[in-house]
């Protein structure tokens, strides 16, 4: 199994490269805003409000991302448990379904990299410079469709919904799935009830349940 540190560094490099629908500069700006949301005043106010929709203020546009894209990143990073379908559909009307989905993936990957560093007491990885100036190919996979989620997902096979959630953006999906495999599921070991790790499976699942409960995630 690939060491966690190597996988996190690879994820960092992946976010510095061109994506499916976003350029490298845009992906890195999304990571920067995911990181900033931890101390952002507007995000804190929105998180504390009875309803996030009661705060009408918006984040300004970034250097490479629109105000809507920046807002998507901040809401994902700071209060994802209270996102709604109508809000997501509004964002997708402006951004497009594919860009929205790629932003979800980048925010998730960036969260993993940064939360791990904070948890173990290490310095946050420095955001890299873009490694590509290429334009994204913007090719929509032909194997995606409506499976009941807010965004299109793979209709092939019988994968769990969570494992195909980013299948609309394959480049980001590969990075995401590699992270999950290295930090949690470990390939075929996932199907075993006993894990040969420093923490046993029950301990890992309890930590996972506590984390997702604190973040109020239904899934």
């Amino acid at each position: 199994m690939e060491p966690i540190a190597d996988r996190l560094l690879q994820a960092r490099e992946d976010l510095a490269a061109v994506g499916d629908w976003l350029a490298a500069e845009q992906r890195l700006e999304a990571w920067q805003h995911t990181r900033q949301s931890r101390s952002n005043e507007l995000d804190a106010r929105r998180r504390q409000a009875l309803s996030p929709h009661s705060i009408s203020d918006m984040h300004p546009a970034g250097q490479t991302l629109s105000a809507t894209a920046i807002d998507v990143v901040h809401r994902l990073a700071s209060d994802s448990g209270r996102l709604t379908r109508s809000w997501a559909e509004g964002a997708m009307t402006e951004l497009g379904e594919e860009v929205y989905t790629e932003l979800v993936g980048i925010s998730a990957i960036a969260s993993v990299v940064d939360v791990y560093a904070v948890a173990v007491g290490e310095a946050l990885l420095q955001l890299p410079s873009p490694t590509s100036s290429s334009e994204p190919a913007k090719l929509r996979p032909t194997t995606v469709g409506d499976v009941g989620a807010w965004v299109s997902q793979s209709v092939e096979g019988s994968r769990a919904n969570v494992s195909r959630s980013l299948s609309l953006v394959p480049t980001t999906d590969r990075t995401w799935r590699s992270l999950v495999d290295s930090l949690y599921s470990h390939g075929e070991e996932f199907y075993e009830l006993e894990w040969d790790r420093a923490l046993n499976r029950a301990q890992v699942e309890l930590v996972a349940a506590r984390t997702t409960s604190l973040l109020e995630c239904f899934y």
Binding site: I4, L76, A77, S80, G81, L83, R85, A88, T101, V104, G105, S107, A108, I109, S111, V112, V113, V115, Y116, A119, V120, G148, A149, W150, V151, Q153, A160, N161, V162, S165, L166, W176, L179, V180, L183, Y184, R197, A198, L199, Q203, V204, V207, A208, T211, T212, L215, C217, F218, Y219
Partner: peptide, 25 residues
Amino acid sequence: RDAAATIAVFNGLVRVADGTGIQLD
């Protein structure tokens, strides 16, 4: 490191599940 990895990866999983609006299987 196991505990930190679990907390980190489920931070990401929450963003993905909530952001894409997936249903329970």
